[in-house]
Amino acid sequence: ISYSHSQISPSMASKLLTEFKSMIQRTDERRLVPAPRLTERELEVLKLVATGMNNRDIAKELFISENTVKNHVRNILEKLQLHSRMEAVVYAMREKILEIR
């Protein structure tokens, strides 16, 4: 097996280093921004999502419509700038927004 090693020009290396530095700064800036405020209802929904409940079960548990649950989940994802229910649960646990026992 032959591996070819390609050289990076000094100007390209400089551009890469600048981009990495910029990425790190953006990540650090995001950490300084306080966690978005979720409403009490959104927190309730997020806790039930975290237990593995689907929208229908959450709706029954909270005595609200399934569409209302969907709206809450969409608002949670939007506020947290996430793409999935699982990401929201992981984020909430990491940021200690909720604790699963």
Rank of each mutant, 00 (worst) to 15 (best):
T68Q: 14
M93Y: 11
A13L: 15
V89P: 06
R30D: 07
S11P: 02
L16W: 07
L32G: 08
K79T: 03
R31F: 01
I58C: 04
K60F: 14
F63C: 05
T18G: 04
E19L: 10
A13C: 08
T18Y: 11
I100K: 08
E44Y: 09
I1R: 12
S11Y: 10
E61R: 14
A92F: 06
V69M: 03
S14F: 08
V89I: 13
D57T: 11
I64V: 15
L32I: 04
I100W: 05
I24N: 06
K60G: 07
D28Q: 15
S22W: 04
M53R: 10
S11M: 09
L43Y: 09
P34Q: 06
D57G: 03
L17W: 00
N67L: 08
Q7V: 13
S4M: 09
R41K: 10
K79A: 04
L32H: 10
E95K: 15
F20E: 09
R101I: 10
E99S: 04
D28N: 14
R94H: 10
S14D: 11
V73E: 10
E95I: 03
E42V: 03
I1P: 07
R56Y: 12
M12P: 00
T27H: 12
L48R: 08
V73S: 04
P10C: 00
T27R: 14
N71D: 03
E87V: 02
R74P: 03
L46K: 02
K47V: 02
E66I: 07
L82M: 06
L16V: 07
T51Q: 15
E95N: 14
Q81A: 11
S22L: 06
R74M: 02
K15A: 12
R74C: 00
L82K: 02
T51K: 15
V45S: 07
S11K: 13
R41D: 02
A88H: 03
M86P: 01
A13V: 05
S14A: 14
V69G: 06
F63K: 15
E66C: 04
R26F: 07
D28C: 11
R26M: 13
E44G: 05
M53N: 08
E61T: 15
M23K: 12
M12A: 13
S9H: 06
R85D: 07
R85N: 13
I97C: 04
N54P: 02
V73N: 02
Q25S: 11
I58V: 01
R94D: 14
R74N: 07
L80M: 12
F63I: 01
G52M: 04
K96R: 15
E78G: 03
H72A: 12
V69S: 02
R41W: 04
I76H: 02
A92E: 06
I1G: 14
T27V: 09
S65K: 11
I100D: 02
D57F: 08
F20C: 05
E87D: 09
A50R: 01
K70Y: 13
K79N: 00
M86T: 15
V33R: 09
K15P: 00
I64Y: 06
S11F: 09
E19V: 00
R41G: 02
N67T: 13
D28A: 14
L16M: 11
S2C: 06
M12Y: 11
L98E: 05
L80A: 07
N71H: 08
M12R: 15
E99D: 03
A88P: 04
M12F: 13
F20A: 05
R37K: 12
S2D: 12
R101T: 11
K21E: 11
S6D: 03
N54E: 08
R30T: 03
